[in-house]
């Protein structure tokens, strides 16, 4: 039987309580929400937390709302809730594009948006999406709250800037007129991405005023194709420029070979998917 090693379990009743429990158990404590990454890792004995702090009862983290010109997604919002959120889809169709292809309905019913980001799996879809959206991540610790840009949140694979004892509480996406799309290639429904691309374009007067391009599972630094963004900014959203941006994105990412594919294929995919995501986003402007 696949069974985890023994661990302490505490159920938090408020964010303050969760923070105090994290402080009490120290660096070997882990937050559990949906548990769809952490629990399998524990059963496979790849993770051995000494304590789990369960935040599933923290209703204050489970809301999606518009506040102060931003879409605010609580860290405990389930994937299925984001997928069915009309307000999220209206402002940022990319969120629904991505949620539709994250795992399967059973995982989406339980897995959380915040958990996905904190896991920082290189193949996780929302990291690239929120990086492309230039979202802000609200982090709370015993000392108070700080806001981290999504692009600065990820340090490396499975590693974020969250300090011991800190909790991601919300994701804030500033609402500005934009078009967006997310395109993913997987080997099977529900599989992790072989590769995926996120595109967010703010168009003004026939020009790309701002652009975000995210890449999933393709070895892009901080999940972003920054050089491709630079190429597009302040120019017209033309097919030729998209093609060049795609070429730049492919050239600058550093995918690794695994059973999902060799490097040449993944690099090709980076270009192909960036082009498709950009075209898909602009197609939504009509």
């Amino acid at each position: 039987m696949q069974v985890p090693a023994s661990f302490q379990y505490r159920k938090a009743t408020s964010v303050a309580h969760a923070l105090s429990l994290l402080a009490e158990y120290g660096p070997e404590a882990r937050v559990v929400a949906g548990g769809h990454s952490l629990l399998p890792m524990m059963k496979l004995r790849l993770a051995h937390p000494e304590a789990l702090v369960d935040i599933n009862d923290l209703a204050e983290l489970a809301e999606i709302r518009v506040e102060g010109g931003a879409l605010v997604i609580g860290a405990l919002v389930r994937h299925a809730e984001l997928l069915s959120s009309a307000v999220a889809g209206r402002h940022f169709p990319i969120l629904h594009d991505a949620e539709r292809v994250i795992a399967d309905p059973i995982v989406r019913n339980r897995g959380t948006v915040g958990g996905s980001l904190c896991q920082a799996d290189p193949s996780e879809d929302l990291s690239a999406v929120f990086a492309a959206l230039r979202a802000e991540l609200v982090v709370r610790g015993l000392d108070g709250e700080r806001v981290v840009a999504a692009r600065d949140f990820f340090v490396g694979p499975y590693e974020t800037v969250l300090a011991d004892g800190e909790l991601l509480v919300a994701i804030r996406v500033p609402i500005r007129p934009s078009v967006s799309a997310y395109v993913k290639v997987d080997r099977r429904a529900g599989d992790w991405a072989v590769g995926a691309a996120a595109a967010v374009l703010e168009l003004a007067g026939g020009v790309v005023a701002e652009v975000g391009i995210g890449l999933t599972a393709l070895g892009a630094r901080k999940f972003v194709a920054a050089e491709a963004e630079d190429h597009l900014r302040a120019g017209p959203p033309s097919g030729e420029r998209f093609a060049e941006a795609a070429r730049i994105a492919a050239a600058h990412c550093a995918p690794t070979a695994d059973q999902r594919g060799p490097v040449d294929y993944k690099r090709h995919l980076a270009g192909e998917l960036v082009a498709r995501a950009l075209r898909g986003a602009v197609g939504r402007a009509a």
């Binding site: 290639v185 080997r187 072989v194 999902r260 594919g261 060799p262 040449d264 294929y265 993944k266 090709h268």
Partner: peptide, 15 residues
Amino acid sequence: LTPAAVWRAIQGRPL
């Protein structure tokens, strides 16, 4: 015939 295998077959370099 995964996506990578199909693409590589098209490139003439089968996996």
